[in-house]
């Protein structure tokens, strides 16, 4: 894992895209790893009874993927200060979430950068996020 420094970053920089294959296994495993036992994240019948065509990814996991996507890029010494996400199209099994990100601002006082992160699936935007990360 290489380390990005604050001085190396320019507003407008694009993060390398990341594709996440969404499987029932991933949705269930990440829900349980985040201690979220809501049945819509592991039980297809329960999800259908509540009007959803299938189980879907929980928000804690989406949050985790947004954080991971940014620190994959910064390296281990990037310190997340904020992850603010809005969910849209659900992540259902069989889909792929394509993550992209862009640097939108730099703050010299605390060496933090602001990013816009988008996770898109076959239905539309699964997540739109604003992230702040401090760099060495």
């Amino acid at each position: 894992m290489s380390q990005l420094n604050y001085a190396q970053v320019t507003v407008g920089d694009q993060l390398p895209p990341l594709a996440i294959d969404i499987s029932a296994k991933l949705i269930t495993a990440t829900a349980i790893a985040s201690r979220d036992y809501q049945d819509v994240h592991h039980d297809q019948d329960a999800a259908r009874a509540l009007g959803s065509p299938n189980i879907f990814m929980n928000i804690l996991t989406t949050n985790g993927f947004v954080g991971r996507y940014v620190t994959d890029w910064t390296g281990a010494l990037g310190v997340l200060k904020k992850v603010a996400i809005k969910l849209g199209a659900p992540n259902y099994p069989g889909d792929t979430m394509e993550m992209t990100g862009e640097v939108v601002a730099k703050n010299d006082q605390d060496q933090s950068i602001e990013l816009k992160v988008i996770g898109k699936n076959a239905i539309g935007h699964h997540v739109v996020g604003d992230v702040v990360v401090a760099l060495p």
Binding site: M1, I20, L26, A29, T30, I32, A33, S34, T61, G64, F65, R68, T71, D72, A76, L77, V79
Partner: peptide
Amino acid sequence: AMIRHWCEAMGDANPAYYDADVAVQL
């Protein structure tokens, strides 16, 4: 253990989450 389960499921290989020598810098 819980951190590793999370990272394993999320595919997050950040060493700060498993290597104390990296974590101390944070």
